[in-house]
């Protein structure tokens, strides 16, 4: 009976090595049993696996750190490509407006409805305006806008740059004496960082308006008192913290899209994986940094 078995860490008739995998074709089960690793080998194997995972993690972290450093340095160093930045303003900012606007509108509307359901039990309906405006400006608008833009823009950036990588267009840029960090990465990072706060500002207004519509037309609130309550409870810091978060999220989304696209592996599968990784990593980072920034602003 022919059988393939993979033996890790064993080489030269059982002598232990620290590197590589040895693939051996074993002709029968007896031989297979003869080279079965001992418990000590198993433990070493386990440690080696942890070591490899740690090394891989450090490698990715280091590579990402260098990528971020290089990207930021090219944002501030000439030559600049204003036309490309303007195009990215349109792609990342203007074309994301419908999706961010719709998200903010319905979030504000749902928030008013749900708050009413809860607060009416304690006769605290008057707090709805405050809950809507604070939730929208501090948390929901920046986080949801960030996540929506991660899905729309982060994926598009990773797919575009990934395709450029696998079709050698990035190599072509280098051979034509154009730095890909300046030409591809910097415009996207600038546009992402500057455009998301604008989107969030618009999202804030639309979100509050969504709560207003439901409160006035469905829940029967007085328009003037609703607006007065909204205005009274809102402070500058509520809006500013949301905008700062938005800038951080825009930076994360554009950078993750660029990083994964730039390091895309060969083939359609590689580009697909880069796109997925860009969206997943930027979404997770948005949630983590949202907590960190909230802690910084309001602790």
């Amino acid at each position: 009976m022919q059988k393939w078995s993979r033996v890790e860490g064993l080489k030269n008739g059982g002598a232990r090595t620290t590197q590589g995998r040895v693939y051996q074709m074993v002709s029968d089960v007896k031989q297979d049993q003869a080279i079965k690793p001992s418990p000590v080998d198993g433990l070493l194997d386990f440690c080696a696996r942890i070591g490899r995972t740690l090394m891989a993690f450090l490698q990715v972290t280091g590579r990402l750190g260098l990528f971020i450093g290089e990207s930021i340095s090219h944002v501030f160093r000439p030559p600049f490509f204003p036309k490309l930045v303007a195009r990215q303003f349109m792609d990342i900012g203007y074309y994301s407006l419908p999706v961010v606007g719709m998200t903010a509108l319905f979030t504000g509307m749902v928030l008013a409805l749900q708050s009413y359901t809860g607060f009416s039990r304690f006769n605290a309906e008057s707090a709805i305006a405050g809950v809507v405006v604070l939730s929208v400006t501090r948390e929901l608008s920046p986080v949801l806008a960030g996540l929506m833009v991660a899905g729309r823009v982060g994926a598009a950036i990773a797919a575009e740059i990934g395709t450029m990588r696998v079709t050698e267009q990035i190599d072509a840029l280098v051979t034509l004496s154009v730095n890909p960090f300046k030409y591809l990465i910097a415009p996207r990072v600038i546009a992402g960082t500057l455009m998301l706060p604008l989107l969030v500002l618009i999202g804030d207004i639309i979100g509050v308006y969504g709560g207003y519509i439901v409160s006035i037309h469905k829940l029967g609130f007085n328009p003037n008192s609703y607006l007065t309550q909204t205005w009274d409870i809102l402070e500058n810091m509520d809006v500013i913290s949301g905008l700062v978060k938005a800038a951080a999220f825009g930076f994360i989304v554009s950078l993750m899209g660029c990083y994964h696209g730039f390091n895309s592996q060969r083939g359609a599968q590689g580009v697909g994986a880069a796109t997925t990784n860009a969206v997943v990593s930027s979404s997770i980072l948005i949630l983590i940094f949202n907590y960190v920034l909230t802690q910084v602003f309001f602790s």
Partner: peptide, 8 residues
């Protein structure tokens, strides 16, 4: 380049 690598 092999696939021409033109900018789309």
């Amino acid at each position: 380049f092999q696939g021409a690598a033109l900018f789309d």
